[in-house]
Design a protein around this nucleic acid. Structure first.
Length: 271
DNA sequence: CCTCCCCCCTGCGCGC
DNA sequence: TGCGCGCAGGGGGGAG
């Protein structure tokens, strides 16, 4: 389901319900996620006290006095807080029962999500160690983007979606950021100048920040931690808008397939 | 090392 | 109405 803005929105909406709560019990109904849920998860998490939540790329972290849960929502995952007597529905794979009667519930029909546990520094976890800088920090800037795109013949859109080069930008926001930066998605990454890298880095930040402000984007089955759909329902400029007029230049938005994913752009203003 | 392609999985909308 | 197909927000992994 989520790109970075949806994960961040989920994290923010869940955090008040989690802070200072002790974990009474963990129920795993289906361990068959992207990676099998570790068998020791229940024992490790039970009794832990949550002191914060955080996010790295599209991973949501639940930080406790005993270790960190590292949760990925994949394509269709969601985390919600529900009452203890709320009956589990299909695809509700994991429940974390808190000491005030609230349950943190992980739901993921496609099971592309994952749930790991690490004791010690979570940034050393194999899934997190090689990730690119956070896109909303100063470390992600024109110089960084220019440096990592040198010598790369892949299309700039593919590079935006490579988590070891740029994190948090998924299929929707890659198209949106390239539109905002007026760069054609098929441009070879190595041909994007420093000046255009500056525009693109800014566009990535702007696109993600706006989507976070809007409370998560318009995703067909996205809900925040309380089951509410993405608020403000921000309109995408190009994503899934083939045939419509570009809001900037009035050109007709086109869609095509790029590496098994759909890409949308405006041939009128993206070069 | 880089690029390309496949795959994991379920659900939904569409055309017939 | 039912069925088959294509597609959906991610990202690891292997072949070349």
């Amino acid at each position: 389901m989520p790109e970075l803005p949806e994960v961040e929105t989920t994290r923010r909406s869940l955090e008040p319900a989690l802070l200072a709560r002790r974990i009474d019990r963990v129920i795993v109904r289906d361990r068959r996620l992207r990676w099998p849920v570790p068998h020791e998860l229940e024992a490790r998490m039970t009794g832990a006290v949550i002191h914060s939540t955080s996010r790295r790329a599209k991973y949501l972290l639940i930080d406790t006095d005993r270790g960190h849960a590292i949760v990925h929502l994949g394509m269709s995952g969601s985390l919600r807080v529900v009452a203890r007597d709320a009956a589990p529905r299909p695809h509700d794979h994991i429940d974390v029962l808190l000491d005030d009667g609230v349950v943190l519930r992980f739901h993921d029909p496609r099971r592309f999500g994952s749930w790991h546990w690490i004791e010690g520094d979570p940034s050393t976890h194999p899934l997190l160690a090689a990730l690119a800088p956070e896109p909303l920090t100063a470390a992600f800037d024109a110089a960084y983007l220019h440096r990592v795109t040198r010598g790369r013949s892949a299309a700039i859109k593919q590079v935006l979606m490579n988590g070891n080069l740029v994190t948090g930008v998924g299929n929707i926001y890659a198209s949106e950021a390239l539109h905002l930066a007026a760069i054609h998605p098929r441009t070879k990454a190595q041909r994007v100048s420093l000046e255009r890298c500056a525009r693109l880095a800014h566009a990535v930040k702007e696109t993600l920040a706006r989507a976070i402000e809007a409370g998560g984007s318009t995703l067909r089955d996205y809900v925040d931690g309380h089951g509410n759909p993405g608020a403000a329902q921000q309109a995408h400029a190009v994503y899934e808008r083939a045939g419509e007029a570009c809001p900037r230049c009035g050109g007709i938005v086109k869609g095509f397939r790029q590496g098994q994913r759909s890409t949308y752009y405006c041939p009128g203003c993206q070069r």
